[in-house]
């Protein structure tokens, strides 16, 4: 049986457009609001990434740190994250949801325990920022056995040899990091260059769904639309920050922004 993630990509390919993938942090700015946000933006986005926040992230830029900080201050726990997923899935059973975070939370929760909760709440995939290949082999296999996608990352520093191995070990989706940066850095490489790298990787196995993330905003998204999927994260976190600052409702604000992002890639 095809995974919901694979089906989402198939769908987009039929419509000759990239998948729009959003990233927001669970519990930002409240548990309720982050669920409302997911419900709203899932009308426009194809795949939803949901961050489970960690207080010592070594690869997140300021925007996502800010979101994580808000969520943690609100007391968000792993069990709340799963609850949000579960509630979301009740109304949107087919929309794929990917949890993203750092390994220590899984380590403390217990790998099996964590995957059990993923399964019962309806999580479709996992991105673990600090569990690279080959150290992730064991855990990635466990995921596979549970039909949960383990999403491998590639970066501009990844050697060709390594890329091949990682692709071989990948499931339905691979994430290409556009540039040397933490999340949310300004796009410091031209879209043309990013697509060049992207296409080199793509040629190794054209069947794999390869998405681009890091630094993508409403300004750059359309220039990258030949990719299989595009992830927008920090920009969304920033909009939550700004709307809170200005006393606006982050839910309606985000709904509008994601709608506009979608318009730019169809």
């Amino acid at each position: 049986m095809k995974s919901k993630i694979a089906l989402a990509f198939n769908n987009c390919k039929k419509e000759k457009r990239p998948a729009l993938i959003t990233y927001t942090v669970a519990g930002d700015n409240t548990k309720n609001n982050s669920l409302k946000i997911l419900n709203k933006i899932s009308k426009h986005a194809d795949i939803l990434e949901l961050g489970f926040p960690h207080n010592t992230p070594i690869a997140d830029g300021g925007q996502i740190q800010g979101s994580s900080h808000r969520a943690l201050k609100n007391g968000i726990k792993l069990k709340d994250v799963f609850q949000i997923v579960k509630k979301f899935k009740k109304n949107n059973p087919h929309k794929p949801i990917i949890l993203m975070g750092y390994f220590n939370l899984i380590y403390q929760n217990g790998e099996n325990n964590f995957l059990e909760s993923c399964k019962s709440s309806g999580v479709d995939g996992l991105i673990i920022v600090d569990l690279p290949y080959p150290e992730n082999k064991n855990f990635a296999n466990k995921c596979k056995k549970k039909s949960i996608n383990f999403i491998q990352l590639l970066s501009p520093t990844t050697s060709k040899d390594r890329i091949k191995k990682i692709i071989k070990n990948s499931h339905d989706m691979i994430y290409y990091i556009s540039m040397l940066s933490t999340t949310g850095g300004r796009l410091k490489v031209s879209p043309k260059k990013i697509l060049q790298n992207y296409n080199t990787i793509k040629r190794i196995n054209p069947k794999k769904n390869l998405v681009i993330g890091f630094g993508i905003t409403e300004k750059t998204i359309s220039s990258l639309k030949s990719a299989n999927g595009l992830v927008v994260g920090s920009m969304l976190c920033k909009i939550i920050t700004n709307s809170l600052k200005m006393g606006q409702n982050p839910v309606t604000k985000l709904d509008k922004v994601v709608y506009n992002l979608k318009k730019k890639i169809i």
């Binding site: 070594i58 690869a59 600090d130 690279p132 290949y133 150290e135 990352l153 590639l154 520093t157 050697s159």
Partner: peptide, 21 residues
């Protein structure tokens, strides 16, 4: 081979970008 001492301490829990450097 995973750079762990005593099988449980250390290692390289790092983002992909840092693997090569």
């Amino acid at each position: 081979k995973n750079f762990m001492y005593g099988g449980k301490f250390g290692g390289n829990f790092i983002p992909e970008t840092l693997k090569k450097p």
